[in-house]
Simulated assay, not measured.
Amino acid sequence: MATTSLQPEGHALSEMTGLLVGHRGRGISLAMKLLAIGFARSHGMHWLRTFHHPDNAAAIGMNRRLGFVNDEPGIVTT
């Protein structure tokens, strides 16, 4: 499941990316996050924000590989 929305402040928000445990580790989350980036770009957004639990090393690593950077605690932007 993945949810991305366009925010009235002028950015997109990748609100949720999640998989059942048995489907993790197959690159599905990465594919969904890439679709979120494409969705944001296709709507003229220059910023995509996301957030993750501070203990979720897999999500943090994926977000870093995609170029997200911390600008607020728990929220990352690309």
Rank of each mutant, 00 (worst) to 15 (best):
E9F: 12
T17K: 02
D55V: 03
G67M: 08
M1C: 10
E15R: 13
N70C: 12
N63F: 14
P73N: 06
H52L: 01
P54K: 07
H52P: 03
H11E: 10
H23A: 10
T3N: 07
S42I: 00
G27H: 01
F68R: 01
V69T: 14
A40K: 00
F51E: 15
I60S: 14
M16S: 03
Q7A: 06
V69W: 09
A59L: 04
A59D: 08
T17N: 10
N56M: 03
M1A: 12
L30T: 10
K33L: 02
P73F: 01
F51C: 14
S5A: 09
M16D: 11
E72R: 13
G10K: 09
K33T: 07
G74N: 01
N56I: 06
A57H: 06
P54W: 11
N56D: 15
H53G: 05
M16L: 15
A59F: 03
L34Q: 14
N63S: 07
G74F: 08
Q7Y: 00
N56Q: 05
G74H: 05
H52V: 04
G25R: 00
A12I: 03
G10M: 10
M32V: 09
M16T: 07
W47P: 00
G38D: 15
F51A: 06
G18H: 00
E15L: 13
A36P: 02
L6A: 07
T50E: 02
M62F: 05
S5P: 00
T3Y: 00
M45P: 09
I75Q: 13
L13A: 14
W47S: 04
L35T: 02
P54S: 05
N70V: 12
N70L: 14
T4L: 04
S5Q: 15
H52Y: 11
G38H: 04
L35H: 10
E72S: 11
T77Y: 11
T77Q: 13
S14P: 01
A57K: 06
K33G: 03
H46F: 07
Q7P: 03
K33V: 04
F68G: 01
M1I: 05
I37M: 13
V69D: 08
I28C: 06
M1R: 09
H43R: 14
M16V: 08
T3R: 02
G18P: 06
S42G: 12
N56F: 07
M1G: 15
M62T: 09
A59R: 01
S29H: 08
L35D: 05
N70E: 15
L6M: 11
S29Y: 08
A31I: 00
S29T: 10
V76S: 12
T50G: 03
L30P: 01
T3Q: 06
Q7H: 12
M32T: 03
G27I: 02
R49F: 09
G27Y: 03
H11R: 11
G25Y: 01
G18C: 11
S42F: 04
A57D: 14
L48R: 04
V69A: 14
T77P: 02
G38T: 02
H23L: 15
G22V: 04
F39C: 02
L20I: 08
R64I: 12
H46W: 13
T3V: 10
Q7D: 09
